[in-house]
Design a protein around this nucleic acid. Structure first.
Lengths: 341, 341
DNA sequence: TCATGGCGTGAAGGCGCTAGCGTCTGCACC
DNA sequence: GGTGCAGACGCTAGCGCCTTCACGCCATGA
């Protein structure tokens, strides 16, 4: 099945057809072919038919590098997220990629991790390609801000609502989400939460929201733990081991993602504990697994797909009429009570 | 937090600097600046320093649309996978995106789903952007084959080793993987496997490999079930319910992904069964959860990161010397026996 | 001293396409 | 038959950059 050595170049036959080739073949000017490609209804029926045929015969595929250069519109948007695996942004990303390509827009994917240098490189790369928009999730460094302000690309910060967005923001208040989780747990009578926070700005905002509300309720301070981002299933072993070493077992574990929550449940069950009777668990993100796990996981639903759609609408809106837009789009969140807490 | 209406355009200050601006400021020709940007070591030390300063002062960011057009090299590769969520390609994708952007190459992401039309659109879009390579996973339709053969882009099929790859292939034999799972289960004394296959070419090859080997061992035919792709955690409920309705309970469930395997384990445990004593489970892909689940999941390890690296090496190799390359790169696989079977 | 050869640089011609500006044609109307 | 008016189309000047070619300069060796 291996060993044969070939030159993969050999598949190429001749040179790719250009607008000129098509135009010559159809007996029209390049301008008309260009119009046909970008705006078919402005060319006459008969001409359109000839051009269509010429394109089919030549196998012409437009060169968007040239087109983008000439029109200074790239029909490309960059989407920058920290991780792909076990990521809370998965739904957003999936919807984004689906809807953008359905609309004929190319998606440039960038994985920033937690590195500022990497982030800046990716922003620079995006601007280099003259993307129409940059969809971004994460903290904005001064360098990034400067580059972005200089660029005509629309800058969209998603999954958060910063006070001073550079462009526009589509997200929700993480502080409020944390607060609502605290209220929910208090209403259910939980007394000793253990808060597991991932090392990231947004997770910290939720944590602060939770703790502030919790303390406002005249409760003792919750115990806490921290995990690296992304907050994954696999972190659960250590987290659970730590919990067992606490002086007093918490009665509920507040997790930064449903994957981590799932892991904690698995560990608890394996240790012979009942969930939620012996220990309750709360997730975040309402990933599909939250409703599918046994027990089902109480979580905070964030409509990732809607975030994607709002972002895309903003892009379309701007490239169209250039209307003034809302600077913040709050998609809210919703606590979904299930079996685990 | 909302309501203020602004024009996000207001962030733009003037026009982006071009090569000419930098050249004028540094007192050199555009050719020299271009050389500095693409191949710094060929310009003299002192000149380089002047150019560096000019770039910093102007905030120049190269226009890769123009650069690509002129050089007919886009420094961009398209990566086309079916899904992002719960996908077995996640590791490959993550590594791909990390290493490519580290190498200054832009990643164009395309989600093909299971639609041939969508796939063809994405291939066309990739060629439109004159990508250097297309990394592809899935069946190749005649239309795709034709477009790809006409294009100078390197076509790399990953996660599989088709008999007649269009460009090159990086993967492993799914048939052999299925066969080895069968052998493993026979050696462990299992008698009644239940095979859950996702609706996809590769999954079917594994299934065929499994069944052929199983029957060769003078065993009764296994029971089977099928799930939509991607084979996810959430499918487990239905699968498990079906299993319970079988005349005879299987003693092992062979799953198309670790996520599904995880789901089956959760269902089994929730039903009071012991894993693997009452029912064993085998996954596929050796995702991180396989080693983290309780019980840990027996799975087939495929080095997704290596697939990514081999693919990238092939691209680099070709754009460099253009050496003849292996047409097939077999990264193999490895059955990892753990607690669940 | 003079040829030789690098090395660093500049000039100029595209790369393939778009968009503004103009022209031409056909048709309705007077 | 002349006029006006669109609709359809062609011309042309770039978009910003890369790359070949040629040139001048200086160090080297004979």
């Amino acid at each position: 099945m291996t060993g044969t050595t070939v030159d993969p170049f050999d598949t190429l036959v001749g040179k790719a057809a250009t607008l000129d080739d098509v135009a010559a073949r159809a007996g029209v000017s390049t301008a008309t072919v260009s119009r046909f490609v970008n705006n078919p209804q402005v060319v006459a029926k008969a001409t359109a038919e000839r051009i269509r045929a010429a394109i089919a015969e030549t196998g012409y595929i437009p060169n968007l590098l040239a087109g983008g250069l000439a029109s200074s519109k790239s029909k490309m948007v960059a989407v920058l997220i920290p991780y792909l695996t076990d990521s809370i942004f998965n739904d957003t990303m999936q919807t984004m990629a689906e809807e953008l390509s359905a609309a004929g827009t190319t998606v440039m994917l960038g994985l920033t991790g937690v590195s500022e240098a990497r982030t800046e490189d990716l922003i620079r790369a995006a601007i280099s390609r003259r993307v129409d928009a940059i969809i971004f999730t994460g903290p904005v460094t001064p360098n990034v801000e400067q580059m972005v302000r200089r660029s005509p690309a629309l800058f969209i910060q998603v999954w958060d609502l910063p006070e001073h967005p550079i462009g526009i923001a589509v997200g929700f208040s993480h502080h409020a989400a944390g607060r609502d989780i605290a209220r929910f747990l208090m209403s259910r009578g939980y007394r000793r939460p253990h808060v597991v926070t991932a090392q990231g700005a947004r997770a910290n905002m939720r944590r602060d929201g939770f703790v502030a509300e919790w303390l406002a309720g005249e409760n003792a301070a919750p115990t806490e733990a921290s995990v690296e981002v992304p907050s994954r299933f696999g972190h659960a072993r250590r987290i659970f081991a730590e919990i067992r070493r606490l002086d007093e077992m918490p009665d509920v574990v507040v997790c930064g993602s449903d994957y981590l929550a799932q892991g904690v449940i698995v560990e608890a069950l394996a240790a012979g504990l009942r969930v939620p009777e012996d220990i309750a668990v709360v997730g975040f993100g309402n990933s599909s697994i939250a409703g599918e796990m046994r027990p089902t996981i109480t979580s905070v639903e964030v409509d990732g797909a809607r975030i994607a759609r709002e972002a895309i609408a903003a892009i379309r809106n701007r490239s169209g009429a250039g209307l003034p837009q809302e600077r913040w789009i709050d998609v809210g969140f919703r606590l979904v009570a299930r079996e685990s807490a």
